[in-house]
């Protein structure tokens, strides 16, 4: 696949968390607003890009028996870097995302890509893969966050946009709402892809 295709596949074909059903924990927990979703997505993308890059660069040197352990050390290091940087320069976001920042290290997306792609492909392709999937994830989180924010607090990106007298569905901001919203979005996307299949096939 060309580099460009490696990148774009992350935006639809293997879009997390919808097509590539991984990374659900942060998806459900932090998407209470669009900004939070985007912040989480960007932090995850940062780790994904660098872990993919380094795993790819080192792939010939790491003996297979210790590869998972090595991947974990590499991924965890970048997660700590993200933690420190966010604490120093993005404190508000850091406090909001809370425990889910260190949890990036067990985000199945990152370990999954390291194992399935970066350990078998060159650095440039791995970089593109990381960027594409990371961006796809960020966009998904942002959209889900916006939907929940719109229905749950009547605002978008912090600005109240619904008509006054609009009773917010606070259900959307609570755990059950997260599950249901994601489920409905997923069903919607399945509909789109089966429609595409019928058209193309």
């Amino acid at each position: 696949m060309s580099i460009k295709e490696e990148f774009t596949k992350g935006l639809w074909k293997t879009l997390p968390p919808f097509r590539l059903v991984l990374g659900l924990c942060p998806t459900l927990a932090v998407t209470t607003t669009g900004i939070n979703g985007m912040g989480m997505g960007l932090a995850t993308t940062f780790v994904l890009i660098f872990s993919n890059l380094f795993v790819s660069l080192l792939r010939k040197l790491i003996p297979p028996q210790v590869r998972i352990a090595s991947f974990i050390v590499i991924i965890a290091s970048f997660v700590v870097i993200v933690e420190l940087i966010m604490q120093a320069y993005f404190y508000q976001l850091f406090k909001v995302l809370g425990i889910f920042i260190p949890l990036i290290v067990v985000n199945c997306i990152i370990l999954g890509r390291a194992e399935a792609f970066a350990s078998r492909n060159g650095p440039l392709a791995s970089l593109a893969d990381g960027l594409g999937i990371g961006f796809g994830f960020t966009i998904s989180l942002f959209v889900l966050g916006c939907i929940r924010e719109l229905l749950g607090s009547g605002s978008l990106l912090g600005v109240a946009v619904m008509w006054s007298g609009f009773e917010p569905f606070t259900f959307m901001l609570k755990p059950p709402g997260a599950f249901v919203a994601l489920g409905i979005l997923l069903a919607f996307m399945n509909l789109i892809s089966s429609y595409q299949e019928r058209k193309g096939g």
């Binding site: 028996q65 210790v66 700590v80 420190l84």
Partner: peptide, 27 residues
Amino acid sequence: MIVVLSLIAAASGLALSLIYRITKAPI
């Protein structure tokens, strides 16, 4: 195996303590 793991761990430790030193004051 041991050498590779140790090298990776060492590199990680170095990078992290560096970033920690830089971000300590802002944090």
